[in-house]
Design a binder for these strands. Structure first.
Length: 426
RNA sequence: GGAGAGAUGACCGAGUAGGCCGAAGGUGCUCGCCUGCUAAGCGAGUGUAGGGGGAAACCUCUACCGAGGGUUCGAAUCCCUCUCUCUCCGCCA
């Protein structure tokens, strides 16, 4: 959410920025409703002022033993009038908040201007792409043949976009979760948390999933509960409605969670394999920072996520999202894309964003500078560190062997009882 | 699921025979004084949001004592509903 006054005073700038994002949102309605609202506020407050004043008079007169009937009658009338006006005011306020909640964040000035993902510049590349002396296969073929991924039974148990992991497949998933949590918690000094995977709609609104992206979420029937699409939601909400001390910042958290996404509107996309699932695992990094350090912290967050892939020996590239590809709440985003030989392409495995104060304003997360009484909004950041399922995909495809086996990256072996390969089991 | 207690500012905590309460007191924090360091002491300041005015410091108005409704001329204080927390009982990974 953007600041109301900022929007009011920067309509033209905002229109330009929205256009860069490819948003056709018109702000004319905002201007109209905002004006009406302020007019009504004045009227209501004048009436309330009158009521308060007269009530005090009544109290004073009564104390002196005088009659105050005529004044009491006046407030009765004023009261009804106030009630009418308040109803109108409520309508305007909810209309205004609906508008302001649907306005996306403003891209950081450094963000490249572009239409869609094809305009995202590559910021860096890491690792050598392996040259195969055979035709590299896709992870779904490798996984099924090794008996570690069972797509048919996943579909039987639940439906499309659900997968059953078996044996070393299940253990590999678990090993990756532990490896990433350990790396970030011990080496990168994030505080490890284990959040709820179900949250209420206040939390969803705070991070920006609601009200605009309801169709992407799984909601529990008859309850104000949603399955989280990412640990970003519960972890960012840890400090909702809190005032932090400047010296506590930056706060860094790492969390594992299962993630649930309805994937409405992506029918036909990535229908095979693990790439796009309704349920997947992810290790997420979240930071709360001061405004002046958030972009430095974004660079560090990106490096922390990159190190996961470096240690696993998986080649990747980092792209900078252009204005047209930027997510709703983000001011700046880097995507890390891992190389998938089976697909012959780079695929997103992590997304690292600075939301500046966009989420903090919705979530009311503030901090106080030492020596100051005023509070300010913190900046929030998050990034995948990284997506587990897609890491499995990358390992299977990058480390596949001629005989159909898969070599396990050395850093993971301690997590898999020393095992060095996944072989076809009899 | 049953019975009871509670929800007040960054934090702790007064305030329920309705008006003088945006709210005592304390802690914390900031500034100043004082003590040759440290500790202690003294004085002052210190909520949020919105509207109006001002170049600005700031002034002014309105709202907010878990949320929403009600009673009343007037509610943190009375009534109703909901949410959450705690204690006891039951059930249960």
């Amino acid at each position: 959410m953007l600041d109301l006054k900022f929007v009011r005073n920067n309509i033209d700038l905002l229109k330009e920025k929205l256009l860069q994002r490819g948003s056709d949102l018109s702000l004319d309605e905002f201007i109209a409703v905002d004006g009406e609202r302020r007019k009504i506020i004045q009227d209501v407050e004048d009436l309330r002022n009158r009521r308060n004043f007269v009530s005090k008079e009544v109290g004073r007169l009564k104390k002196e033993g005088q009659k105050a009937e005529h004044l009491m009658e006046e407030t009765r009338v004023v009261k009804d009038r106030i009630k009418e006006m308040e109803t109108v005011l409520e309508e305007k306020e909810s209309a205004l908040s609906a508008i302001i909640l649907s306005v996306p964040n403003i891209p950081h000035p450094g963000v490249p201007i572009g239409k869609d993902s094809s305009d995202n510049p590559v910021a860096k590349r890491w690792g050598d792409i392996r040259q195969f002396d055979f035709e590299p296969r896709s992870h779904w073929d490798i996984g099924e043949e090794l008996g570690i991924l069972d797509f048919e039974r996943g579909a039987k148990i639940s439906g499309a976009r659900f997968t059953l992991y078996k044996g070393l497949g299940a253990q590999l998933e678990r090993a990756l979760i532990n490896f990433m949590l350990d790396l970030h918690a011990s080496r990168h000094h994030y505080t490890e948390v284990w959040p709820p995977f179900i949250v209420n709609d206040t939390s969803m609104t705070a991070t920006g999933q609601l009200p605009k992206f309801k169709e992407d979420l799984f909601k529990l029937e008859g309850r104000d509960y949603y399955l989280i699409p990412t640990a970003e939601v519960p972890v960012t909400n840890i400090h909702r409605d809190e005032v932090l001390e400047e010296k506590e910042l930056p706060k860094r958290y790492v969390a594992y969670s299962a993630c649930f996404r309805a994937e409405a509107g992506s029918y036909g996309k990535d229908t095979r394999g693990l790439i796009r699932q309704h349920q997947f695992n992810k290790v997420e990094l979240v930071k709360f920072t001061t405004p002046e350090t958030s972009y430095l912290e974004l660079e560090n967050l990106l490096l922390d996520a990159e190190e996961v892939l470096q240690q696993l020996g998986l080649p990747y590239q980092v792209v900078e999202l252009c204005t047209g590809d930027l997510g709703f709440s983000a001011a700046k985003t880097y995507d890390i894309e891992v190389w998938l030989p089976g697909q012959g392409t780079f695929r997103e495995i992590s997304s690292c964003s600075n939301f500046e104060d966009f989420q903090a304003r919705r979530a009311n997360i503030r901090f106080r500078r030492s020596g100051k009484t005023k509070t300010e909004l913190v900046h929030t950041l998050n990034g995948s560190g990284v997506a587990i399922g897609r890491t499995v995909v990358a390992i299977l495809e990058n480390y596949q062997q001629t005989d159909g086996g898969v070599v396990i990256p050395p850093v993971l072996r301690p997590y898999l009882m020393g095992k060095a390969r996944i072989e076809k089991s009899a």
